[in-house]
């Protein structure tokens, strides 16, 4: 009986641990709060000058100290979504292969490769993109693409290494490990009973995967996509190197463009005026808000798949 009382009250070690955990948790919140406050405070000059209209203005006149954020928001969303469009299906394919087909050993090796890819510094991806991927895309991928779809404005103009096109591919490669790894975990969590149920109805393995496994894992995979999207939107160095940092709304993927992160990285060190600096910080604030929205919705989705009504079968 004493033991139970003790357990209920908790012993001193537990209390200390709990206290520390809460402390660290709070300090994380505090630091994030501080960051937001700092961004908010430091951007007040720019916010006061341009107000909300900064969100839909494309002005870019550093000497005249006039700025708009739209082309950078646009560049960020286009490259991030484009990268997801490329990496999403491939990532699911890899995950499906690892869970449904590959033997254990292959699974483990690929797991290590994926983790290594995720650990490669982003500058390395950027340099590789310019010297290897860019030329490769321009000689082998762009010509057939333009032969078929060249009439679309999206694919017009000459291919260059420094372009939105290369940047999108590099981003796709960078987020692929995230998509593949999370999708793999989500797909592996689908109960075998679901697979057996579909197989026993006379499904092929592909039908089993597409009709039983994928629907079950759907919200988790959407969560993985959203996390990858957040990562792509915030990616800085690789894009600052490749995308060209041209502050405009591009219409062709072979044009140069800029994202919020890339334009900050490219200009911060030599921003000539207080207004310029303030505007770049405001861009950071907007980026923070966008990635926060993406990440929070991703978390919510992953949570609902883990604990929601589709997670278990009522007995």
């Amino acid at each position: 009986m004493d033991l139970f009382k003790q357990l209920r009250r908790g012993n001193p070690g537990d209390a200390i641990f709990k206290g520390l955990a809460v402390l660290f948790g709070l300090s994380l919140l505090f630091i994030s709060g501080l960051v937001v406050f700092e961004l908010w405070y430091q951007s007040s000059l720019s916010r006061g000058e341009f107000g909300w209209s900064v969100l839909w203005s494309t002005e870019w006149d550093p000497p005249g100290e006039r700025f708009g954020a739209l082309q950078f928001i646009y560049g960020t969303l286009v490259t991030a979504l484009g990268a997801l469009l490329l990496a999403g299906p491939i990532g699911i394919g890899i995950a499906a292969f690892l869970v449904e087909i590959a033997p254990r050993r292959v699974d483990r090796v690929v797991g290590i490769v994926v983790e290594t890819l995720a650990a490669v510094p982003s500058v390395v991806y950027g340099l590789w993109g310019i010297f290897v991927l860019g030329p490769f895309l321009c000689s082998y991928v762009a010509p057939p693409l333009q032969a078929v779809l060249g009439w679309l404005p999206l694919f017009s103009g000459p291919c260059r290494s420094y372009s939105v096109f290369t940047a999108t591919f590099i981003l796709a490669i960078m987020i692929l490990p995230t998509v593949a790894a999370i999708s793999r975990d989500v797909i592996r969590a689908v109960p075998d009973a679901q697979r057996e149920a579909m197989l026993a109805l006379g499904a092929t393995r592909w039908e089993m995967f597409s009709r039983a496994v994928l629907p079950y894992a759907k919200s988790g995979i959407v969560g993985a996509f959203a996390l990858a999207l957040g990562r792509a939107a915030g990616e800085t160095m690789a894009l600052a190197i490749i995308i060209g940092n041209a502050p405009r709304i591009f219409t062709s993927l072979f044009d140069q463009g800029a994202t919020m992160a890339s334009i900050i990285a490219a200009n911060f060190a030599n921003a000539g005026s207080a207004m310029f600096v303030s505007f770049l910080i405001e861009l950071g604030l907007i980026l923070f808000a966008i990635t926060l929205i993406i990440n929070v919705s991703a978390r919510l989705l992953v949570w609902t798949v883990a604990s929601g009504p589709s997670g278990g079968i009522r007995a």
């Binding site: 009973a193 679901q194 057996e196 579909m198 197989l199 499904a203 039983a212 589709s310």
Partner: peptide
């Protein structure tokens, strides 16, 4: 085997309906 399973159906020990359907 796919054709075999269409002709010989199976009900499992634990109910396993498709939750998304």
């Amino acid at each position: 085997p796919v054709r075999v399973r269409r002709r010989v159906g199976m009900v499992f020990q634990k109910p396993n309906p498709f939750p998304t359907m």
